[in-house]
């Protein structure tokens, strides 16, 4: 009984470390492949359009509502003694430091990681990846690296974009809930603004961009058999990318707290 338990645990541990090892290998290979990026410019542009441009509508909607809800919640929470203009600063920091990058990251884990995993997974199960290899095209260079590069550029930009929209909708919402004027809102923002907050947003976007694309690619490349394999790969990509985003968010916040 105990022996069985131990072997089961051992089995899962071995499986886990194998996966971790393969993920690490894929990551290293794809970062090394970046030096060949100029040859794959058209793949990078395609990936950029897919990750960046096509994510804009969903980012507009989610960040607008994120700002609106922050405006309501913070507006109703601040005590009567606090000056109303303080809400501008609270919203600004909440969005730049946490809400902007994390919500965008999670939304993109749903949209981009899953899209990448299912596309690469479908190629895997129909032997299209093997076909790339037999024609001397390296799948990591051709499929993974362009998505990684596009994600590292597009996702920080999307985060900044989301931040901006959320801040404006946060103002709109505080205007309606606590009658905060634009001058008051700006005064509040000025009061707390530090440039490192913006950098935090960008750094988080950049690192989430790596996680979102790499997890999509990794689970796509590891796809098992048939349509069910593709489905599983897609689910795993979304779940793991989301979990990792939350973990990384904590780590980055903690590290930056000590640095800045």
């Amino acid at each position: 009984m105990i022996k069985k338990l131990i072997t089961t645990i051992g089995h899962f541990a071995a499986l886990y470390f194998q996966q971790l090892g393969r993920l690490t290998i894929l990551s290293v290979q794809s970062f090394l492949a970046i030096r060949k990026a100029p040859r794959y410019l058209s793949q990078i542009i395609d990936a950029f359009v897919y990750i960046g441009r096509y994510s804009i509508p969903i980012i507009i909607i989610t960040s607008a509502f994120m700002g609106l809800v922050l405006g309501v919640q913070i507006g109703t929470q601040i005590s009567p003694e606090t000056p109303r203009w303080a809400e501008g600063g609270l919203i600004l920091r909440a969005i730049l430091l946490e809400m902007g990058p994390v919500v965008t990251g999670l939304i993109l884990a749903g949209r981009v990681s899953s899209g990448i995993a299912s596309e690469i997974g479908a190629m895997k199960v129909t032997e299209q990846i093997d076909a790339l290899r037999t024609t001397a095209i390296n799948p990591v260079e051709f499929l993974v690296m362009p998505r990684l590069v596009a994600g590292m550029i597009a996702i920080p930009v999307l985060v900044i974009y989301a931040d901006t929209i959320a801040i404006f909708s946060g103002f709109v919402s505080s205007y309606f809930t606590i009658d905060l004027t634009w001058t008051g809102f700006v005064k509040g923002m000025r009061h707390v603004f530090v440039a490192t907050d913006v950098y935090t947003s960008i750094i988080k976007g950049f690192i989430f961009g790596i996680a979102i694309t790499l997890f999509g690619c990794y689970f796509g490349m590891e796809t098992g058999h048939g349509a069910r394999g593709v489905g599983k790969a897609t689910t795993h990509a979304v779940v793991w990318a989301s979990i990792i985003i939350l973990i990384l968010d904590y780590i980055i916040s903690a590290v930056l707290f000590f640095i800045w």
């Binding site: 129909t126 032997e127 299209q128 076909a131 790339l132 037999t134 024609t135 001397a136 390296n138």
Partner: peptide
């Protein structure tokens, strides 16, 4: 890639077209 697949091609069972 450089030594084998430059002189050898494969036609897959199910085509495997992109």
């Amino acid at each position: 890639n450089t030594r084998v697949r430059t002189k050898m091609g494969m036609v897959f069972q199910y085509g495997a077209l992109w």
